[in-house]
Design a protein around this nucleic acid. Sequence first.
DNA 1: CCGCATCCGCAGCGATACTG
DNA 2: CAGTATCGCTGCGGATGCGG
Lengths: 123, 123
Amino acid sequence: MKPRHPHNTEDCRAVSEILQRVGDKWTVLVVGKLGDGSMRFNELRAAVGGISQKMLTTTLRGLERDGFVTRTVFPTVPPRVDYELTDLGHELLVPVAALGEWARLNTARVRAARQRFDGAAAN
Amino acid sequence: MKPRHPHNTEDCRAVSEILQRVGDKWTVLVVGKLGDGSMRFNELRAAVGGISQKMLTTTLRGLERDGFVTRTVFPTVPPRVDYELTDLGHELLVPVAALGEWARLNTARVRAARQRFDGAAAN
DNA sequence: CCGCATCCGCAGCGATACTG
DNA sequence: CAGTATCGCTGCGGATGCGG
């Protein structure tokens, strides 16, 4: 008997949506760094590495909008802005970390499959 | 003391890669449908719904390349091609389904957060 | 220090038409 | 039936410059 995961169309759409939401270039990296506690804008920028100002702002706005992070502005000069994961953000991290663990364990297998495929295509 | 998920930079990159791989528009939908057993090209096309033949081909080629599905051609006329999940593909489905379950349970919270955010922005 | 505005290249995706 | 080829649109993401 097959495992028959609960995949009705409706659920698949939900998975698809959330994966596209989280599957952009920077979101998980930012959320991951924020997993260890609140951080300031440039601190986060340095921690992630390679992200442009624009994309960090965009990413953070999106996360804030969806309720995954909070944004706290200290009206000092120079200004200071802290970002922190909400409860929802932390909870999201759980299944994402599971997928990450899977990725870590299986990248070798995927790379091997790729080499086989690309080798066969070169015939 | 904080939970401190195991998020070194290297792991985060791995998560990011796999999420981008799987986070495109159709991949999870196709893999989901294939989760119940092997399917033919147009059968899959109908089951997924709304996907163009070009994107289905592209998606399937990518999945085949990465070792998630097998492609079996029957040299009959008219031609018949079956696609089926590999073991690796089935294993991938496990953490993806977990994320999907999370998505299903929390879409309401996300939508609420969005409404709050968008409402506040309209001030 | 933080972030918005603008411009631009490029890849993802769709629509359509054509082959074995 | 199962693809390939081509075109056009759109949005992501990078670079740069300005503003509070």
